[in-house]
């Protein structure tokens, strides 16, 4: 497609998604996700971009009656993560997620970051402490919290909480990290911090981010997909999408005439 040099990390093929109500939220969405790149999903509210994102770590499995059709292939092992035989928990151990609103657990800062390791049965104190430190550093939070790791996570500011959630997701070395409008609940300064962090993280892993902020998509992403009414309208590298969109609808949305 657009790029032949960079290896693929994942791709969706003819992905359909139905909510329990019967509503079809995704219609035959096909799209590549390139390794160590940031791919942004944009589109008006209700276009299915969050629904699409949440397919990648099978979040929809939590609510009975939801149905996937089609494939999400993960590389290099060519696993279709939507296949029945593939365990959702195994998928989530490879693909982690950061949510719209920071959702730390009612635990200490340390235990929040260590959560993924605990869930995996890691008991070695040394290993856990090292991993937590590494993750906090990776999320650019270490300097702010290193002396109060036992404090309750709720005491952090909103931006810090979101970075804590990133650290939590980072601690288990995921291959892909999903971001669902990660800065929509944050102020501009915290937003800038998170964006900078995401650009850094791209060297370690692959990022898929949903955003309703077009400037944000333009600033941080390598590839951009424009979705509308559950369909993939246009996909391309971010520069092309924002300067020379192929479709009129994309241009209208990007220039603010619509949406």
């Amino acid at each position: 497609m657009v790029n032949t040099q960079t290896p693929l990390k994942a791709e969706s093929k003819d992905l359909n998604f139905f909510y329990a109500s019967g509503h079809q939220a995704l219609k035959s969405v096909s799209m590549p996700i390139y390794e160590n790149k940031i791919t942004a999903l944009i589109g008006p509210s209700g276009c299915g971009k969050s629904t699409y994102l949440r397919c990648f770590n099978r979040m929809h499995d939590l609510y009975p009656g939801n149905k996937y059709e089609g494939q999400i292939i993960m590389h290099p092992d060519n696993t279709n993560i939507l296949e029945h035989g593939v365990d959702a928990i195994e998928v989530r151990m490879r693909i982690s997620m950061v949510f719209q609103k920071p959702n730390p657990f009612p635990k200490s800062i340390f235990e929040n970051v260590a959560y993924g390791l605990r869930v995996r049965g890691e008991t070695n104190k040394r290993t856990v402490a090292d991993k937590v430190e590494e993750a906090l550093k990776g999320a650019a939070l270490w300097n702010e919290v290193k002396d109060r790791q036992q404090d309750l996570a709720f005491n952090l500011s909103g931006g810090q909480q979101q970075r804590l959630c990133i650290a939590r997701a980072l601690a288990t070395d995921p291959e892909i990290m999903l971001f669902d409008e990660p800065t929509s609940a944050l102020d501009p300064i915290a937003t800038a911090n998170i964006e900078e962090l995401m650009s850094e993280l791209r060297h370690k892993l692959t990022i898929l981010v949903v955003t309703h902020n077009m400037q944000q998509a333009a600033r941080i992403s390598d590839y951009t997909a424009y979705m509308y009414l559950g369909e993939m309208m246009e996909y391309g590298d971010t520069d092309t999408i924002f300067t020379r969109p192929a479709r009129k609808e994309t241009e209208d949305y990007i220039t603010g005439k619509f949406g």
């Binding site: 989530r92 982690s96 959702n103 657990f105 009612p106 993924g116 869930v119």
Partner: peptide, 28 residues
């Protein structure tokens, strides 16, 4: 809130782990 459970499931936790390690402490 459901978002707290989702945070736990997204880390690969099972139902039991989520219930015991996240929901119960939050509802203490």
């Amino acid at each position: 809130p459901m978002s707290m459970r989702e945070g736990s499931y997204a880390m690969g936790a099972t139902r039991f782990q989520t219930a015991l390690r996240v929901v119960t402490p939050a509802a203490t």
